[in-house]
Design a protein around this nucleic acid. Structure first.
Lengths: 347, 347
DNA sequence: GTTAGTTATACTCACTTTAAGCATAAGGAG
DNA sequence: CTCCTTATGCTTAAAGTGAGTATAACTAAC
């Protein structure tokens, strides 16, 4: 009996905030177009966006992070600053196209934060607004109307499609909690839960493709599982990505939204000195929520997270703002120094 | 050129709380004694404690969690309830004994919570108080004196041993933040940071062994790196574990301590109905801190996390307590329902 | 060079949440 | 009956939050 070989792939979610928008670095994934069946392409027939990725060289790379740094450097020319491990994905079905007989792929995903200056990238890499992939997560302007107009009805249909009563009510509960429906509050951190619901309900392109490929490979007939249905292409939500990369991205976004609340990671995305409004805009961009300005100031200043430098910001329209910098001492003073989203303006 | 094969190992940190003490499931790791050089054994010559572990079968196990469940079942007879992925460890040096030429081992660690009833285990498995491995984390009775008497002085020596000034002050800052020295507060979640400091400073048995083995394999002479020194065996802290399992355990402890604050995971460790004091004791056991009783009650009750059942607890010495149960609806009402350590009694 | 628009920053006020206690209730053991 | 134990209710001060109002300092337009 031949043993199935294992391959480790490292994925990087590389985040920056430019012009008050959170961006992630993407590349084109040429191999992945192989798995797209004829007639069911990614909108325009081009290779889909992918997160930067590379194999771990089990012989050469001493640590996982070094491996990551290495090919990110090569592929994009970017020097990573803050790096943290996100999650390891290893389900067999995660890459339906490479499933039978091939090696088992385990992908270990990392989150990296870089400063906005570093935006020049080389090669096929592109910075993309991460809300293109998750339009329902962007509450900066207002609560996205697509939640009520598209998502809620489609998910409700999916829940009802469950014949089993307890499954149906479990689905309903998940939907309400994840999307803040029926009076439940919106929790900005539940990004992954929301994406997975949409995936299960067949509302994202990846699910459609996975199903098609899986079915073709199994040579099975249309034994569709409970409540799985085909959406028309036009109703699929958000910009798709290759393989399960959008799931990885959702994990990253949720993790980052949580982390800013108890660790001073935002500063990894800012230049060493910044105005309070710039800081606020970055936090808002990540959290996807607008904040109350005065309370935000009070929180970060009185919280000891920043300190004034005395210098003023040269640019901007109105009264010049003071430049602040991260106050390192806060690490010694408070147990979990972060930015607790003061006054998230829900109205 | 031969390619180095990759092997995936799944590690489980299986936690229960019995008699108000947090316990983890351990097994004996027979293979690991191979790596112990003669004369430098784990205290009594026996095989060291290990976390339950097993290989991923890349061909058979459809998902990582299924693989985990499978051999946990086999090895220990325990049915896992709540399971969450912790972290993936893949540094080349993590297993010095199996280093040159052998396969690259990537270990993916999981945290699992079980109810205390399930304590009967079969085979070589044992439940152990997790504070045996991290005595400095147990502040239930009082601030452990070993922090001031052993840890602080030894770490201070280690910091001073750095010849480079900036390295020295970075070490000092890490020490103060991690162990709450020099006026910094104690952050119960920084379990891993503390363990890693002790490891780097050579204060845990694992470091000593890793160094011996690595040196023997490199056939190198005593080119000790900056500030790495040998401790006498008696001054090594806490009960050691095989390989890097104590590091994994530290990760689990820190993660769990954080998670109870924003997700209702404690209830996975309790029977479906419990008194408020039982709940409090479990939280205290995990957090390693004693809490203010009245405030704790107020928080969990007014916070909507629990609801009374009307029944009274038969046992206990004083006035009978009401039995409560987890109030599932809280998931729909609050964004991050957890237990915010009300009134951690620091005195 | 006054006016309007813009952004920054200071301060207020009502309201909620916490920390820490005090006090009372309800059982068991002797 | 008394003491000990645990449960549970209530109080009070301090701190923190949400949502403003007011003022300051600049730019651009007329």
């Amino acid at each position: 009996m031949m043993t199935t070989p294992v391959v480790i792939v490292l994925n990087g979610v590389i985040v920056a905030v430019t012009d008050d928008r959170p961006r992630i670095l993407t590349v084109k994934h040429p191999d992945d177009s192989l798995r797209v069946p004829e007639g069911a392409d990614f909108g325009n027939g081009a290779a889909p966006d992918a997160l930067p990725f590379g194999p771990l060289d089990p012989a050469a790379d001493r640590t996982l992070e070094l491996g990551l740094n290495g090919w990110v450097q090569e592929q994009t020319g970017i020097e990573l600053g803050y790096v943290e491990q996100l999650y390891s994905f290893g389900d067999r079905n995660r890459e339906p196209g490479v499933r039978q007989g091939g090696p088992r792929v385990i992908s270990i995903a990392y989150l990296a934060l870089v400063r906005e200056e570093q935006l020049s990238v080389r090669g096929e890499a592109n910075w993309r607004d991460w809300y293109e992939y998750f339009p329902w997560e962007d509450w900066l302007w207002r609560r996205p109307s697509m939640i009520d107009e598209q998502i809620a009805p489609a998910l409700a249909r999916w829940a009802k499609a469950a014949t089993d009563t307890s499954l149906r009510s479990r689905r309903q509960e998940r939907i309400e909690i994840a999307f803040g429906l029926e009076g439940a509050p919106w929790d900005q951190e539940r990004v992954l839960e929301r994406y997975e619901l949409l995936y299960e309900a067949g509302l994202v392109a990846e699910q459609a493709l996975d199903t098609i490929v899986a079915r073709r490979e199994r040579q099975e007939s249309q034994k569709s599982s409970q409540g799985s249905f085909r959406q028309t292409k036009s109703s699929l939500l958000g910009r798709p990505m290759a393989l399960d990369h959008r799931r990885i991205l959702a994990t990253a976004l949720g993790r980052l939204r949580g982390k800013i609340k108890y660790r001073p990671v935002v500063f990894e995305l800012l230049s060493p000195t910044f105005t309070l409004l710039q800081l606020q805009r970055v936090v808002e961009a990540l959290a996807g929520v607008r904040l109350h300005k005065q309370n935000f100031r009070r929180l970060v200043e009185k919280g000891g997270l920043v300190e004034g430098t005395g210098q003023l910001d040269p640019k901007t329209g109105g009264r010049p703002a003071e430049l602040f910098c991260f106050r390192r001492e806060v690490l010694r003073e408070r147990p979990a120094p972060g930015i607790g989203l003061p006054g998230a303006l829900t109205k």
